Simulated assay, not measured.
Amino acid sequence: MRGLIQRVRHAKVEVGSEAVGAIDGGLLLLLGVEARDDRASADKLLHKVLHYRVFGDEGGRMNLNVQQAGGGLLVVSQFTLVADTARGLRPSFSRGASPQQAEALYDYFVERARAQLSPVACGRFAADMQVSLLNDGPVTFLLET
Rank of each mutant, 00 (worst) to 15 (best):
R2E: 09
G3Y: 11
L4C: 15
L4R: 03
Q6D: 01
V8Q: 04
H10R: 15
H10C: 14
A11M: 09
K12G: 01
V13T: 10
V15G: 07
G16P: 09
G16M: 03
G16D: 06
G16L: 09
S17W: 15
E18L: 13
A19R: 13
V20H: 01
G21Q: 00
G21E: 09
A22E: 15
A22W: 04
I23E: 05
I23L: 14
G26A: 11
L29S: 08
L30Q: 07
L30S: 05
L31Q: 02
L31P: 07
G32D: 09
R36V: 13
R36S: 15
D37I: 06
D37G: 11
D37F: 09
D38L: 00
D38H: 06
A40C: 12
A40F: 14
S41E: 08
K44Y: 13
L46D: 12
L46M: 00
L46A: 10
H47Y: 02
V49D: 04
L50D: 06
Y52V: 14
V54S: 11
F55C: 06
E58P: 10
E58V: 14
G60A: 05
G60S: 02
R61T: 14
R61W: 13
L64W: 12
L64T: 07
N65P: 11
N65E: 02
V66Y: 03
Q68E: 15
Q68H: 06
A69E: 11
A69T: 05
A69V: 01
G71D: 09
G72K: 12
L73T: 04
L74C: 01
L74W: 10
L74D: 03
V75K: 00
V76E: 03
S77C: 13
S77A: 04
F79S: 11
T80C: 00
T80W: 01
T80M: 06
V82R: 10
A83K: 07
T85D: 01
R87E: 10
R87A: 13
G88D: 03
P91D: 00
S92M: 09
F93I: 03
S94N: 09
G96M: 09
P99Y: 08
P99T: 07
Q100D: 15
A102I: 06
E103G: 05
D107C: 04
Y108N: 06
Y108V: 06
Y108L: 03
F109C: 11
F109H: 05
F109N: 07
V110P: 04
V110Q: 05
E111T: 15
R112P: 00
A113Q: 00
A113F: 13
A115T: 07
Q116N: 10
Q116P: 12
L117W: 06
L117S: 03
S118G: 14
S118I: 09
P119S: 03
V120G: 02
C122I: 06
R124G: 02
R124D: 01
A126V: 02
A127S: 03
A127L: 10
D128A: 12
M129F: 08
M129P: 02
V131H: 05
S132T: 14
L133S: 10
L134F: 12
G137L: 02
G137N: 05
V139D: 07
F141N: 08
L142V: 14
E144A: 10
T145K: 08
